[in-house]
Design a binder for these strands. Structure first.
Length: 561
RNA sequence: CGGGGCGUGGCGCAGCCUGGUAGCGCGCCUGCUUUGGGAGCAGGAAGUCCCCGGUUCGAAUCCGGGCGCCCCGACCA
């Protein structure tokens, strides 16, 4: 049993000025964390208790799939990262020692773990599954939202070493299973989505996304629960436009001073979904390309970049004028001598597009008949689309990535030469996977998903304490002794108990209890003690149950069971 | 890196435009009263006004430069 009078839990009466996201606000107000610099946080004792609960859940599930816990150093010699080719990633924190030797603060530990995997010489020693909880350093472009995006954080990262793809497949899906269990145990609402391979490099990846308003990813969800994907990779069926009457050939109409899709659709009384917008861009090869999207859709930059073979930029007004003979608001695909990439949504139907003549648009423009193009998926999934599996309605929600799993293949074992000898004595590259989770993000996501403004409604598994006993001092008789007795009983029953034994006013104690968020609160005060009773309250429901003091511990245990 | 905002006791802020005594609320310390949702009275401690330079008799305030932090757009656990 911990006594609040002796702990360092610096709760704040006001919201800190620099915190906006609910998790950030509540973590600072509740005395869980303090910011040291941009993206740099200390976990104070209360916050560390919660963090360690997450860590322990992860540890148990990792051990359950046969993973071995170890610890690799945070610093790594630069050469190792030069060998893997990651040394030049801008997010890598580099530093020198006193002799001028270069090091990096590892942002993940593929290099170091692969270094150790070089000691695996034989197929007899495979597979292996190693993990550690270690600090990662990242020179983030922009830290934000408290714990959601920081420059230094603890990560559980594990690495699998297999002799072939089949082995990797098994290791990979073992992790997927373990991850689902962990996040369920942490009380999170989450989705396993196919993801982008990103910075780590590799083949296949899934990411675990927890919906929350402060999240910085977007997740597309089917209302029937059979589809969830990061918007970066999501596919969907667009909603159907209401087309006007079919025309045998495009028909030019004057649209004076009409430039945007909204203006066009309003001026012509036409469904914006029955319009096409032209987006001239300059690809990595310097060539002008015309991207064509349905009026209500947004260009998906990653998809487009992949198609164009790299970064692209919008064309400048002079380039547009030269190529189209018209300016931005009146462009269309008809008659242009450029590579035209049209989104799949434009494959069938007749659309309104710019006429390549300022102040005019064309009605009834049809792909194939009126212009030539290649079709591709270059649009972003949006609210109101339909699920590709069941046709259900798709919604797009913000979410935070709390974990991911990657099939690395030989991305690291090749350059770092981590090989083994197979049965025939032939040298083979070890096939690897890597798997990460940020406990700090799990903590933040749990709050984002479970709070009511002033209360943190911790899932039982993450709450820093199971029970908080609020002793309302007041008259100062043997009230504290009774509170301690109840606490001792609960402790003996295996519960984690916090006793607020401070000399403070009731309102202050209740407010702090809301922030500390123990699922069960027991109030011991003069008012009820006159009848020999105390109040039990489940924080989430807010209802008090008055019970005789002697039965408090038993009833509490029952309520929490 | 671009755009916007902020920097004054532990926390939240005013003062700055129009230079001259550093202020308010909360918190903290002492005493008395109070005690079921952030109390009352009395007394008290605590601030290089982000930093450097300039203007001035005099700078929190005006000018120049720098730094830090937050928020909005391209990356990730």
């Amino acid at each position: 049993m911990d006594r609040l009078s002796q702990l360092h839990i610096p709760t704040l009466r006001n919201d800190p000025a620099d915190a906006e996201a609910p998790s950030h606000r509540l973590l600072v107000r509740g005395g869980y964390v303090r910011q040291v610099g941009a993206g740099l946080f200390s976990f104070l004792p209360l916050g560390w208790r919660v963090h360690q609960k997450v860590v322990q859940i992860i540890r148990e599930e990792m051990n359950a799939i046969g993973a071995q816990e170890m610890l690799a150093p945070l610093l790594a010699p630069a050469e190792l990262w030069q060998e893997s080719g990651r040394y030049d990633i801008p997010e890598v924190f580099g530093l020198k020692d006193r002799h001028g030797r270069d090091f990096v603060l590892s942002m993940t530990h593929e290099e170091t773990m692969t270094f150790h995997a070089r000691e695996l010489g034989s197929y007899r020693q495979l597979p292996q599954l190693w993990y550690h909880f270690q600090v990662k350093g990242r020179d983030e472009v922009r830290p934000r939202a408290g714990l959601l995006r920081v420059r230094e954080f603890v990560m559980k990262d594990s690495y699998s070493f297999d002799r072939d793809e089949a082995g990797l497949e098994a290791s990979y899906w073992k992790h997927a299973g373990a991850y689902r269990k962990m996040f369920e145990r942490c009380g999170l609402r989450f989705y396993e989505c196919e993801g982008d391979v990103g910075l780590m490099g590799g083949e296949v990846a899934h990411e675990y996304l927890a919906p929350c308003p402060a999240g910085e990813n977007e997740i597309a969800l089917c209302e029937n629960g059979d589809y969830a994907a990061n918007v970066e990779a999501a596919k969907s069926v667009p909603s159907a436009p209401g087309f006007p009457e079919r025309l045998d050939a495009p028909q030019e109409v004057a649209t004076p001073d009409i430039r945007t899709i909204e203006e066009v659709s309003e001026f012509l009384s036409i469904d914006p979904r029955a319009t096409a917008k032209a987006m001239p861009v300059v690809g990595p090869d310097g060539q002008l390309v015309l991207g064509l999207l349905r009026g209500d859709h947004r260009l998906h930059e990653l998809k487009a970049a992949a198609l164009l073979g790299g970064e692209f930029r919008p064309a400048h007004p002079e380039e547009i004028e030269q190529a189209f003979g018209a300016s931005g608001g009146s462009l269309g695909p008809v008659g242009v001598k450029l590579r035209v990439i049209a989104d799949e949504a434009l494959r069938t139907g007749q659309f309104v597009s710019g006429a390549n003549r300022d102040g005019f648009h064309l009605l009834g423009v049809e792909a194939g008949r009126d212009y030539e193009c290649e079709f591709a998926d270059i649009r972003e999934v949006m609210d109101g689309d339909s699920c590709i599996h069941c046709g259900g309605r798709i919604t797009v929600e913000p979410a935070i990535e709390i974990g991911n799993i990657f099939k690395l293949g030989t991305r690291y074992s090749d350059p770092l030469h981590a090989v083994y000898l197979d049965e025939s004595g032939k040298e083979q590259a070890i096939v690897m996977g890597c798997y990460g989770i940020g406990p700090g993000r799990v903590v933040a996501a749990a709050i984002e998903q479970n709070h009511d403004g002033n209360k943190i409604l911790w899932p039982r598994s993450l709450a820093p304490y199971d029970v908080e006993i609020v002793a309302l001092q007041g008259a100062g008789e043997n009230l504290l002794a009774i509170a301690e007795e109840i606490g001792a009983e609960l402790s003996d029953a295996g519960l984690e108990v916090l006793l607020d034994d401070r000399e403070a006013r009731p309102g202050e104690k209740f407010a702090d209890a809301d922030l500390i968020g123990a699922p069960l609160r027991i109030t011991v005060g003069k008012k009820t003690l006159e009848d020999g009773a105390v109040d039990l309250r489940l924080l989430a429901s807010g209802e008090d149950r008055r019970v005789p003091a002697a039965e408090a511990a038993a009833q509490a245990a029952e309520l929490l069971a």
